[in-house]
Design a protein around this nucleic acid. Sequence first.
DNA 1: CGGCGTGTTGGTCAGTTGACCAAATTTTGC
DNA 2: GCAAAATTTGGTCAACTGACCAACACGCCG
Lengths: 200, 200
Amino acid sequence: MTKAAAHARAHDDRALQAAARLFREQGYAGTSLRDIARAAGMLPGSLHYRYASKEDILSALMERAIDRLIESVLAATAASTDPLERVRLAMVEHVRILLSREDSVYVLLYDWRSLSPAAERAIARHRRRYEQFADELLAQAAAHAPLQPGVDLFLVRQFGFGAANWVAQWFDPKGPYTPEQIADSFFRYLTLGTLRSGGG
Amino acid sequence: MTKAAAHARAHDDRALQAAARLFREQGYAGTSLRDIARAAGMLPGSLHYRYASKEDILSALMERAIDRLIESVLAATAASTDPLERVRLAMVEHVRILLSREDSVYVLLYDWRSLSPAAERAIARHRRRYEQFADELLAQAAAHAPLQPGVDLFLVRQFGFGAANWVAQWFDPKGPYTPEQIADSFFRYLTLGTLRSGGG
DNA sequence: CGGCGTGTTGGTCAGTTGACCAAATTTTGC
DNA sequence: GCAAAATTTGGTCAACTGACCAACACGCCG
């Protein structure tokens, strides 16, 4: 990589990272391009040179978040061949990234409405790959460990994602739980339930 | 009630309902006071007469959403005295309201960031009552039906709320599930788990 | 009937917004 | 070392924003 290209990419990174943080804190509409430029240490014109519109920034941010998610969860699940354990590893990693300093995943999940219909379709297509990977993990786990009768894997996926994604809303780094403990508990509740068998 | 007061309250209702719908669709910062006034069938000045600031509208909206939630869930759980069934009824009702035309609950859950710290504290205090009610329901259920060892009721509450609140993000009225079916399945997964006992 | 308070009108105001650009500057390939 | 390409600068522009208000209309009560 040339020196200029490296420099440009570093600026690009800083712009997206600053945008992610601001979008997370103030929302998309609540953040101005000048805010982003200032936080990224550049002038508004430079930002415009890299991204033609504000929505381009959001789209790029979300694509990066999806890539980051897929890559990390893929790597995390490679640590085991047991289908059930792989689901647990995926859940832990998903929560871990969501609660990390990488704000783009939070923006991906919660600033959905700000996209134009066209951009939303593009991101949805991209995100579909992540969901498909999750569905594969679940299907393999279900093939390996028998399910309760009537359990719907689509609902299980939405159930798990919902609980996991919501953690970003209430997690307190100074609280008594680590991201790993939370995801681990959630996995246990989801598989074994919370009641003792025969109760209720 | 006098005719004028009824008229005024109707306008108030229309303003809040219009604001809720727009905030849900475009977010708080993405919605202008003129948008709200137009959707409510009044002029910007009239809106200002009722609410001194845009944030006042959001606060009023959220307070109304909490009141609506508490009232409805309280009524729904009154239909049974079985502690476990009462949790199920609460979950179904929560999801039902979230997916109803009452957009204020959605705004309450997802436009949190837009409040100033002072307004946020006020809403948080108000919302705490709803969470306490949920915690009471869970504690009574736990006292009645023995839990698996190590189950943490705080995490169970966040688990359930997370899964339930996330439904608003993916629910499709034209899809194969009704809100009641979704909440019911979630309750089953949460209590009994998804795997057959002894599996895994 | 008549005056009063509640609510409405249609507009103003200063400040901010996203998009854009010509000129200056830096970096690259030859 | 030099011309071309890539990047940055510092600003402009029209459109929009939230807040606000003086003048006005209406229904209520005496």
